[in-house]
């Protein structure tokens, strides 16, 4: 039995073999490569395309996130899942959730725009951030307009590293508005691998944020745990 999370950007497969979590990640367009030789009856699906792929049972990303995070942090009370095209905030204690998907400014796509602009890899963003000496204020709440503001800051003399840090703060501020008071706040999703964004969020919230070892596969694991 596997958990398969096919989201807007990537597909994730998780299985548990002898108590050990095994996983594979591919681009969404290559999701079929992950299930070569696997019967649909052995798949518990989640993610945006959960119903379009073969599955024995499907579960929404919200429920999958709760089960997946529980594996790493059993007493987490708020989960923030930053996906490619939406951000979900789940209040586990109050059994409540909100999703931002109307605006790119609080989604992984926003930071992808920034990386594309500088022609760098997303995973390099964190090290650029760490080299920034100043943080320019990017005040715009709209993703597209924030990009024009970013260019204005470059023209004004800020370095690429500083502007990237400024964009991380703009992104983190946007996310922070959605997050309720929490004792244990856990972040998941591919975007969380970006250490620059993470440190900006911790700075804004003035609190430590917990991240599982492999934050991108938590929902696939959660789908599996939900069913099994």
């Amino acid at each position: 039995m596997i958990g398969l999370d096919v989201g807007s950007t990537t597909a994730k497969k998780v299985s548990i073999e002898d108590g050990e979590i095994k996983y594979q990640i591919a681009g969404t367009h290559n999701w079929k490569d992950l299930i070569t030789g696997i019967d649909g009856n052995d798949i518990i699906s989640t993610g945006y395309f959960r119903k379009s792929i073969p599955h024995r049972a499907s579960v929404t990303e919200i429920t999958a996130a709760i089960y997946g995070v529980r594996h790493y942090f059993p007493d987490a009370d708020v989960i923030v899942d930053i996906g490619g095209q939406d951000t979900k905030v789940i209040d586990v204690k109050k059994n409540n959730f909100i999703i931002n998907d109307k605006c790119s400014a609080g989604t992984g796509a926003f930071l992808e725009f920034v990386a594309n602009y500088f022609k760098i890899e997303l995973k390099e963003m964190g090290s650029f951030h760490s080299r920034a000496k100043r943080i320019p204020a990017i005040n715009n709440t709209c993703g597209v307009f924030a990009l024009s503001e970013m260019i204005s800051q470059l023209v004004a003399g800020y370095t690429q590293e500083e502007v990237i840090a400024g964009m991380h703060y703009a992104f983190a501020r946007r996310i922070s508005f959605m997050i309720p008071e929490a004792q244990k706040l856990v972040l998941i999703g591919g975007t969380v691998k970006n250490k620059g964004m993470l440190s900006a969020l911790e700075d804004i919230l003035q609190k430590e944020v917990l991240v599982p070892d492999e934050p991108q596969i938590v929902n696939a694991l959660g789908a599996l745990k939900y069913y099994c």
Binding site: Y48, V59, T60, E61, I62, T63, N95, N96, F97, I99
Partner: peptide, 9 residues
């Protein structure tokens, strides 16, 4: 998606 997640909730 929200409706389905709400039902699960």
């Amino acid at each position: 998606l929200r409706l389905e997640a709400f039902r699960e909730l």
